[in-house]
């Protein structure tokens, strides 16, 4: 009976149209995540360009945030013309480092691995400083970077307060 089932399954697979399509679905959804499971950066798990199992907006949470950069006088600075990057990339890089750093902090139970959402502004600072430094040093437009004496990185927290979307900035980095 089992052999019969296997034979039927084999026949079904042979008759399956678009076998390449299904191979790539399995390859991208199962094999790539398995091969990249040990990557130290969480965001890189399941990713091996151009293969990606990334589900855009898979998990809508009741909080969100983005980051922006200002000069020393808190005047906003365009991320694209100054650093040759864009806010989503800066946020993703910051978020990845933040989560990695959170793993080294103690949580409420006194064990390693604090949720990144519970990190205080001071705990975020080393990560924010490092991201700003990386942006400043690797900028494609060093002349633009030199126009300001220093930079600040802000994390803009977005959450609901009495049913209204509320935004609150916090300083997380300075160079």
């Amino acid at each position: 009976m089992i052999l019969g089932l296997i034979s039927k399954l084999n026949q079904w697979c042979l008759n399956l149209p678009f076998r390449l399509h299904w191979f790539f679905v399995i390859f991208t959804a199962i094999i790539i995540p398995w091969l990249t499971a040990n990557h130290p950066v969480k965001a890189q798990k399941g990713e091996w360009y151009p293969f990606s199992n990334f589900p855009m907006y898979s998990n809508f949470e009741p909080t969100a945030y983005y980051v922006y950069i200002t000069d020393q006088e808190d005047k906003p600075v365009g991320i694209a013309p100054t650093f040759g990057s864009w806010p989503t990339a800066v946020k993703k890089a910051y978020d990845a480092k933040l989560k990695a750093h959170a793993k080294t902090l103690l949580n409420k139970k006194g064990k390693l691995g604090k949720p990144s959402k519970d990190m205080t502004t001071e705990e975020c600072r080393p990560v924010g400083d490092a991201i700003l430094k990386q942006l400043r040093d690797a900028s494609k437009f060093p002349e633009e970077v030199k126009k300001h004496s220093g930079y600040r990185l802000y994390q803009m927290d977005i959450y609901l307060e009495e049913g209204k979307i509320t935004q609150k900035p916090k300083l997380v980095g300075e160079v």
Partner: peptide, 29 residues
């Protein structure tokens, strides 16, 4: 990844729009 809760949490998509709007502004001001 959403444990099947994807549809239930979609109203929070509003926060994502606020996030994208902010990000779009700070790219070129």
């Amino acid at each position: 990844q959403s444990h099947g809760n994807w549809l239930a949490d979609t109203p929070y998509f509003g926060l994502q729009i606020a996030k994208s709007t902010g990000q779009a502004f700070y790219e070129w001001l």
